[in-house]
């Protein structure tokens, strides 16, 4: 445990220095773009990990929250003409929390494995809704392009360098917040639910309310990652709501190590970079993803992060 702050600080230091190290080289733009993807995916996987690692709720529908964040921003910019970044983010967070509360309300009522089914069904329903586009808001298959916010107080998010540091700040803040929530009394009750739901119930806690709130908290951060991703890529596409994105959260977090919050960032870093390399080389690179899942379950069920920390202690 004691190593974790040091690892976190090291990660932040690397992230802070990366643009300086690359400044002026041909790869600066490309690597920064990729690094922002890693950070935002890391935040997204962290949100998933909060739910799985701390409450024991295995979601396979986190794309619902991620996509809600992305689409809330995109719809406001493209359809509503709103360009103020704080307004966009607040609206995206509110929308994600609402979706999270609904999904949480449903998930809190069913057993541990059934949560997988319920969250998956919720995300797929939302995906189909966005694809069908009954109200003419989401532009169906094509998604909404042109998600560009206006500068605010001299901060222009359309500048890649600026976006990089804003994303970094948000991710660090997200980590600190999630860790603080996990340490709080609320978080301790959630841990209790993970360990022994029946005893927590007998102690007088409303387990369903705690679970619903936990899903909403997770949705908040997943939605934040989604909103920033829409601003970063300047598009919200239906794929952000697809099952593959839900699976991504599971992959990043289980690879990095669930219940660690930092592990998922590591997992996101490995997979995002590996995907960038492998998808160019092999058309069927998803086979690697599948193989990673299988290998993790059998050989590394607690993920990379705990293993790395243990080796450092020796």
């Amino acid at each position: 445990m004691s190593r974790r702050p040091a690892v976190g600080a090291a990660l932040v230091a690397v992230a802070l220095l990366l643009p300086l190290a690359l400044a002026g080289t041909r790869y600066a733009h490309y690597v920064e773009h990729l690094a922002v993807q890693v950070m935002l995916m890391g935040l997204y996987a962290m949100a998933w990990d909060f739910l799985n690692g701390y409450v024991g709720m295995f979601s396979f529908g986190h794309a619902a929250f991620f996509g809600t964040g992305a689409y809330a921003v995109a719809i406001l910019v493209v359809r509503g003409g709103v360009t103020s970044a704080p307004v966009l983010l607040l609206a995206a967070l509110a929308a994600s929390v609402v979706v999270g509360a609904v999904v949480g309300y449903l998930s809190a009522r069913v057993g541990a494995v059934a949560i997988f089914l319920v969250t998956f069904a919720c995300a797929e329903a939302l995906y189909l809704l966005v694809l069908t586009d009954p109200r003419g808001l989401t532009n169906g298959d094509n998604g909404l392009a042109g998600v560009v916010p206006a500068p605010l107080l001299g901060v222009d998010l359309t500048q890649p360098g600026t976006f990089y540091y804003v994303a970094l700040a948000v991710v660090v803040l997200g980590y600190r917040l999630l860790a603080a929530i996990a340490r709080s009394q609320f978080g301790q009750v959630l841990l209790g639910i993970r360990e022994n739901e029946v005893r927590v119930r007998f102690a007088g806690y409303h387990v369903e309310q705690y679970k619903t709130a936990a899903v909403a908290v997770s949705a908040f951060f997943a939605g934040l990652a989604g909103a920033l991703t829409a601003l970063h890529e300047r598009i919200a596409s239906p794929e952000t709501l697809g099952w593959a994105v839900s699976g991504d959260a599971v992959l990043y977090a289980t690879l990095g190590g669930t219940g660690t919050l930092l592990g998922p960032v590591l997992g996101a870093g490995i997979v995002v970079v590996a995907r960038e390399v492998l998808s160019d080389l092999f058309r069927s690179w998803l086979i690697f993803v599948g193989a990673t899942y299988i290998a993790l379950v059998f050989f590394l069920p607690s993920g990379l992060f705990p293993v790395l920390l243990r080796e450092r202690r020796r």
């Binding site: 494995v113 699976g247 998803l286 086979i287 599948g290 193989a291 299988i294 993790l296």
Partner: peptide, 14 residues
């Protein structure tokens, strides 16, 4: 339950 979900998800993707 979680372990089997991850395993079979991998199998399905492959």
């Amino acid at each position: 339950g979680m372990q089997v979900l991850v395993l079979t998800l991998g199998v399905a993707i492959i």
